[in-house]
Design a protein around this nucleic acid. Structure first.
Lengths: 131, 131
DNA sequence: GTATAATGATACCATAATTGTATCATTTGT
DNA sequence: ACAAATGATACAATTATGGTATCATTATAC
């Protein structure tokens, strides 16, 4: 997890906790103690991606666009870090010329699938409730 | 996996395949088609870490210092990428002030443990043999 | 016994990704 | 109209990654 994902997740959890009240970036910054312009950028991205709904103007801010149970950690990871992959080597350039490595690829892929399955079980609401 | 780990693993597999013959970097470079000075650096590190044994002088090179079954992918990852961690945020600075996140930490840690267990089953020899 | 081909050690460099900052325009509630 | 918010976007600093270059040292082959 990069800091993007981390900050975004914390922000979403906090917003979710404010049940329905519009939350501004400045409010979030005060609570989470993260750099303001950076967090702003992140929230704008989440807004574009449809995870947050934004309200402009005085006393504007952000609101969840979905149920907290429908906001998955994996989605945040995808947005800020691209598709979830443990071993990128193969994708960067050519597939590895060494057949032996393909055995590794299979093993890694199997692990990846497991992790992905587990990650898909993590939502904003389950972090709030502590399931 | 970073390219360090990737190159190193390929080199180790090749050396293991040369059963007992000393292998020079130039030989490896010809086979694996990776940049020579970079690979040299990597092998020097592996040598320092006791994974390879080095032979200086003309017709020198490297040899495995252990059985291929005792060279674990996790060790390479540790050497080139530091300890295996999916979520570094917590360790970089302070632990997260938000209690909610600690639930996440627990979940991530559990996933990490699983992955680590699986990775510990991957050795150079099992990649060669294809177990 | 010298040339050659290898590693040891180490410092440096280039590029890309990450982690931000800054600014101006636009919207909207008071 | 003003203040306080987001939208859009360009720029900048820092760090990690991937890679070079160089000089010294060692040992084998001839």
């Amino acid at each position: 997890m990069t800091r993007d994902t981390d900050y975004a997740l914390r922000a979403l959890c906090f917003i979710a906790g404010c049940k329905g009240k519009i939350v501004s970036v400045s409010k979030l910054v005060r609570v989470l103690k993260v750099p303001q312009p950076f967090l702003r950028k992140l929230l704008q991205i989440l807004s574009k991606k449809g995870i947050l709904k934004s309200y402009k103007g005085n006393s504007g801010g952000f609101l969840l666009n979905n149920d907290p149970g429908n906001i998955f950690l994996v989605d945040l990871i995808k947005i800020f870090q691209g598709p979830f992959i443990l071993n990128e080597c193969f994708l960067k350039k050519h597939p590895c010329p060494n057949i032996k490595r393909c055995i590794l690829r299979k093993k890694i892929t199997r692990i990846e699938e497991y992790v992905l399955k587990k990650l898909k079980g993590i939502t904003v609401s389950c972090l709030l409730k502590g399931d």
